[in-house]
Computed example of a mutant assay.
Amino acid sequence: MKIVAFVGETFDSYNGNYYTKQTSAAFLQDAIGTESVYVCSPVKKVASLPLSYSTEVNESHFYPFPSYSSTKDFAIKSLFQRGYIKSYKLNADKVIAEHSGAYFWIRSPSMGSLLFGIQALNAGEKVLHHMCADSSSTWKDPKYSFSEKVFGFLFSKYLRIKLKKICEHKNTINLCTGDVLETFSAKYSPKNTYQFVDLMAKKPGNIAPTLKRKTLFKMLFLGRIVKDKGVFDLIQVANQLKEKVELTIIGDGADLDEAKQLVDSLSLQETVTFTGLLPNSELSEYYNQTDVVVVPSNNHYEGFPRVIMEGWAFNKPVIVSNTGGVKAFVKHNVNGLIFSPGNMQELSDSVNKLATDEVLYSQLQAEAKKMSVYSSQHYWIDFLKSLIAK
């Protein structure tokens, strides 16, 4: 088996290898072997080895594509940069012809991936379409101006047309992360649509026994430190409940410094801890020590955050906002608590409820343990292989 994957993230090029943070390429390498996975993606050259990365690809298995920083950037370059789309199609056709008969993995809503997938389908190849985020409503984000929202709305309609074309094709297997994306895909291809999570976490071998409730209720946030991930709301909740809680924040991102400044301004240095980005091998300690994993996103593009299943793998309940596809697996008051995105009071109430109601906590923890069957990379690798075998 061979898979050629267009993953969309920008890789760092250094000394004959390509590096980036966690991607589905790393999942595929674990699933079928590094030598059987070829990767296409934008690149940039760097002067030194990246300090942290989760995906590494040798140059013999990598195809550089023209760079773009976002869907908006791709759209602008397509409209105003002469030959930009043509170069993408020519590069795609060359790679597809070289690996004819392989499976071609694309990851929407990356525009480069969508274009690559359409070229592969036009060539009669089989496409594994991983739908990991919903870009149809990102134009609603308040950070955009009116003109940007109009442009974004129109472009989202164009994206939907392309997604429909890929989803309904007879040579496509649609792998949807979250219930919203699954519902969309199933409208066009009910027999070739499946729920899927490209989970990197291995089954933990060192789950700590349940500890007696500590004086302080420990919360864990793991992800990109940007405002639309809700991390600033969570810091404010930690301030409201600082006599009851502790918060550990793992990750980095564009708004990390601003988040640290907020913690300093609220004098929360004893309540909130930043660890920076950590390799997967170091996360077990933090999952074992926490009481709850919190996913407070307030954006319009979430699929199903993998950190939810990583928390369940360690038998931890979750508190999540009702964004994207979380309801594919999270059931309110069963294996987690769900609150309205951006509603800080509901988030605070959820944390306080779980911190003070030991009966509810025990019930949610027991159900989280039942979800651990889905919470390992091995499960999803076997699931993917079974689909391909069919």
Rank of each mutant, 00 (worst) to 15 (best):
I3G: 09
F6D: 06
D12L: 01
F27H: 05
I32D: 01
G33T: 06
E35P: 01
P42Y: 10
V46Y: 00
S48D: 08
T55S: 15
H61P: 05
Y68W: 07
F80M: 07
E98C: 10
S100N: 12
R107C: 12
Q119G: 01
A120T: 02
E125P: 04
K126Q: 14
S135V: 11
S145Q: 12
G152T: 11
L159R: 15
C167I: 13
I173N: 02
D179M: 06
L181F: 08
F184S: 05
L199T: 04
K202S: 15
A208C: 07
A208D: 07
M219Q: 07
L220E: 11
F221C: 07
F232T: 02
V237R: 07
Q240A: 14
Q240R: 12
V245Q: 01
I249D: 07
K260A: 09
Q261A: 11
D264E: 15
S265K: 15
L268E: 00
G276Q: 02
L278I: 08
Y286C: 04
Y287E: 04
P296E: 00
E302L: 06
W312L: 00
K316G: 06
V320L: 04
T323P: 04
K327G: 00
I338S: 00
I338V: 14
I338M: 01
E346F: 09
Y361K: 12
L364M: 12
Q365K: 12
M371I: 01
S372N: 06
S376Q: 07
W380C: 05
F383L: 04
S386T: 13
A389P: 01
A389E: 12
